[in-house]
Design a protein around this nucleic acid. Structure first.
Length: 478
RNA sequence: CGGGCUGUAGCGCAGUUUGGUAGCGCACCGCGUUUGGGUCGCGGGGGCCGCCGGUUCAAAUCCGGCCAGCCCGACCA
């Protein structure tokens, strides 16, 4: 690389992001427009998120399954809103085995339709409910403006699909999934998300109600990083998902679907990163600690041996650690590289440290300078140091979010607020009013926060009485 | 999908105006040097100049088409 580091975040956020994901070796460009190769360093983060969420999903009684990626086009066309919402972004296979297919196959953009077909087959009685399915899969949406992690043509996700006897049970499920996502975002990704419902215009194609978690990125925009939908009986009606209730009547099931994708990693990058590069929350960092041995000749052998021993102790203490023993690179180069790649804690072991029985510790951020800790206590102290770092990132992101969120009462103050953060506003709920706001400022209603207090007012834009019974969050989004 | 910009070594770029067989920095390889915040020297290797076609004795350079990337917009669980 000819330049050292990436374009500063403060100078050009978008350039910063694009350069960083490549330079930090999270991803490389795929050969097809909008696709990405997730490299081991990036994939490890995904695996860590995945392992946690998969645990939550199984714990709550869901079973993992895997449905085919090819969906008959006719399935797709059954639910009117669903077709309309997804048609423009479908990839369709029309030729296979050297022949034109009789029925084109849609490469799944989401699996409500195939799974609906099988739910219909598998559900007969109220005793078959609830049916709780999940799958980890790749999906394809032909997006016009791709961006690594945030909107790629093909992406990885988890999609939960469940069927229930009634609305109450289905809604309980919908809210369970939302809670799981919020927990994952807060506890692993250290993103202080806001939970709540989407306004009708932002709903999933075919859903009755859509819930979301929204995080604030460091440029003040919002990122939707997980959604949960109550589908009512919309899909049950078109796929014939029916069951016999206790009275012997044939009734439609109520279904839900919910998804969390590799987009969450984009959220991590844009929530915590800074001018120097990535800052990774320890709980999803591929390497929580990197040890850099320093010195040459006899000193190099001594420090390398000490680094290996310490790495062994850290591993036994449950810490993901990497020893950077590349002999041709000087320490300063390594420091900068690991900072760009976001490693939370760096330990330097040089001859001076060994002589003093200490190791030099440098945190990726949160304090000035370095400190020495006793070499023989490093492994025992490290889990606590990492927990503190994790908590620090969450608090810092929360403070940033709160400092960039404000109540806005009038149209005058609005453009300015959404140019750098979120606006809490009363809105009339009318689509034409939303459209006008979007045309002027690019801001859209992000979420009706679940925990906002009951309040009424007048729409900041048009002066009509407010909808939703509370303030909603407005922002520019990804 | 509309408007703008850009495709030359792994990365960043010069060369294109005025056609003449490709260059710089970093990275890479070898030897030496250096090692507590992006060492230094010497010697090397690496190119269908995005792709296809046209004009020409001759094309990175001129013309046409296509593809890809970036920015803005529209679209977008």
């Amino acid at each position: 690389m000819s330049r050292e580091g990436v374009t500063p975040q403060s100078e050009d956020f978008s350039a910063w992001y694009n350069e960083l994901v490549i330079q930090a070796e999270l991803v490389d460009r795929g050969p097809v427009r909008g696709t990405m190769v997730i490299r081991p360093y990036g994939y490890r983060m995904w695996e860590l998120l995945q392992a946690d969420l998969d645990g939550r999903i199984k714990e709550a009684g869901h079973g993992n399954a895997c449905f085919p990626m090819f969906i008959p086009e006719s399935y797709f066309k059954r639910e009117a809103e669903h077709v309309e919402g997804f048609s423009p972004e479908l990839a369709v296979v029309t030729v296979a085995g050297g022949k034109e297919l009789e029925e084109p196959l849609v490469v799944r953009p989401t699996s409500e339709t195939v799974i609906g077909e099988y739910m219909a087959k598998w559900i007969e009685s109220h005793r078959d409910l609830p049916l709780l399915l999940n799958q980890w899969a790749n999906v394809v949406r032909w997006e016009l403006r791709p961006r690594m992690f945030l909107r790629t043509t093909e992406f990885l996700w988890q999609e939960g699909h469940t069927a229930h006897a009634d609305e109450e049970d289905a809604m309980r499920e919908t809210m369970w999934a939302l809670g799981a996502y919020a927990g994952l975002a807060r506890e692993l990704a250290a993103i202080p998300v806001i939970e709540g419902e989407k306004t009708p215009s932002e709903r999933f194609a075919g859903a009755e109600r859509t819930y979301t978690i929204e995080g604030m990125m460091r440029d003040g925009r919002a990122l939707q990083s997980g959604t949960s939908h109550y589908l009512g009986t919309n899909f049950a009606k078109v796929f014939d998902i029916t069951y016999q209730d206790e009275d012997g009547k044939l009734v439609h099931a109520h279904t839900t679907s919910w998804g969390m994708s590799t987009r969450m990693l984009g959220g991590v990058i844009m929530t915590h990163g800074d001018d120097k590069g990535l800052v990774l929350p320890p709980r999803i960092a591929p390497y929580q600690v990197v040890i850099v041995p320093i010195g040459r000749d006899e000193a190099a052998e001594r420090t390398a041996a000490a680094a290996r021993d310490l790495a062994g102790e850290l591993k036994r203490a449950g810490v993901r650690v990497h020893v950077d023993d590349r002999s041709q690179l000087r320490p300063g180069y390594k420091f900068n590289e690991w900072e760009l790649r976001g490693v939370p804690v760096r330990l330097e072991i040089g001859p001076r440290d060994l002589d003093g029985g200490v190791v030099t510790l440098a945190r990726r951020l949160g304090d000035q300078g370095k400190e020495q800790i006793p070499l023989d206590r490093a492994a025992e102290l490290m889990p606590g140091i990492l927990d503190d770092f994790q908590a620090f990132l969450y608090t810092r992101a929360e403070r940033f979010r709160d400092e960039h969120t404000a109540d806005v009462e009038s149209w005058d103050a609005f453009p300015d607020q959404v140019s750098q953060g979120w606006a809490r506003v009363f809105h009339c709920g009318r689509t034409d009013c939303e459209d006008a706001i979007k045309a002027d400022t690019a801001a859209t209603p992000r979420v009706i926060p679940s925990d906002a207090p009951e309040e009424h007012g007048v729409c900041f834009r048009c002066g009509e009485p407010s909808a939703y019974g509370k303030r909603i969050l407005y922002a520019r989004s990804y």
